[in-house]
């Protein structure tokens, strides 16, 4: 009997090796996931001003990983699109590509890929499915583009000479921020994301809009007289609502205990960052 068992085990081993060959496109998707997540770690280190061992320029390094993730997805799709679709991994692979292109600042290409994912989900196929986080991300991408654009606008406004600063520009920034918030409300209420942990991400990007608004509002400090006060108030109100939303996100969306704990920590962080302007 022991000989029989040895044979079985050897056979299992052989098939395990074969498995790695037959599931190679899934394996490539995993590679792309790893590359993207590593790029995101570097990206977050840059955004949060944290050092990464042995990396001088974390932002530049993150772009390298995003580019590699795009290349890996392209390769997997080129050779194994049918397999990926059959395994319902096509949408997952495209989502990584869309996210990577967003971080590489190629918003047009990113949007195109995201649209493909959204269209795929709409087909509601039995085999070629799109999973909830991936769909949520692809639907959220236009908002992420808008926040980045808003950030550029705020930076530009802050960099302008005091005399050239126009109230029209800051009004436009505030209007854009409010519109982005509205768009965000639409995604938050999408049925696909009910109770989904991505709600925490969406609550955090609301705070990211506040951070952008803070920079723009603070830049009005150079305006004559008390010109800044109105904009401080706009930011303060926006920030207050963002933090309130983050604080309540776990309860509002019935998130599980792990995400609830993450939401509490995130709230602690953003409350420390987003201070009221005088």
């Amino acid at each position: 009997m022991s000989k029989y068992l040895v044979k079985i085990l050897k056979t299992v081993l052989v098939f395990t090796i074969l498995l790695m060959g037959c599931a190679q496109y899934a394996h490539q998707v995993r590679d792309a996931q790893d590359l993207f997540s590593h790029g995101a770690r570097l990206d977050l280190a840059w955004k949060f001003n944290k050092d990464m061992p042995v990396v001088d320029d974390t932002l530049q390094e993150s772009h390298l990983y995003y580019a590699l993730a795009v290349g890996t997805v392209n390769e997997a799709i080129r050779d194994g699109e049918t397999d990926l679709r059959q395994d319902s991994l096509y949408g997952t692979a495209l989502t990584i590509k869309a996210l990577s292109l967003w971080r590489l600042r190629d918003t047009a290409a990113s949007q195109k890929v995201a649209n493909e994912v959204i269209a795929l989900a709409a087909k509601n196929s039995d085999t070629d499915k799109v999973w909830p986080r991936d769909l949520g991300i692809c639907k959220s991408l236009p908002i992420l583009f808008k926040i980045d654009a808003l950030a550029e606008q705020a930076k530009k406004f802050a960099a302008e000479e005091p005399k050239k600063k126009s109230e029209k520009t800051i009004d436009n920034i505030i209007a854009n921020a409010k519109q982005t918030k509205k768009d965000l409300d639409g995604i938050v209420n999408d049925h696909i994301l009910q109770g989904h942990p991505l709600q925490l991400f969406l609550a955090k990007i609301r705070c990211e809009i506040s951070i952008v608004l803070r920079e723009a509002a603070a830049a009005t400090a150079v305006l004559p007289c008390n010109g800044a006060q109105n904009y401080y108030k706009e930011y303060n109100d926006f920030m207050k609502h963002s933090l309130q939303h983050l604080k309540n996100v776990a309860v509002t969306h019935h998130l599980d205990d792990v995400v609830k704990a993450q939401a509490e920590k995130s709230h602690t962080y953003y409350s420390g960052i987003l201070k009221k302007l005088p």
Partner: peptide, 16 residues
């Protein structure tokens, strides 16, 4: 592979 978690970056400005 479908279930794997992803680290997702945040949009907007640097927190400095």
């Amino acid at each position: 592979t479908r279930e794997r978690e992803l680290v997702i970056p945040l949009p907007g400005l640097r927190h400095n």
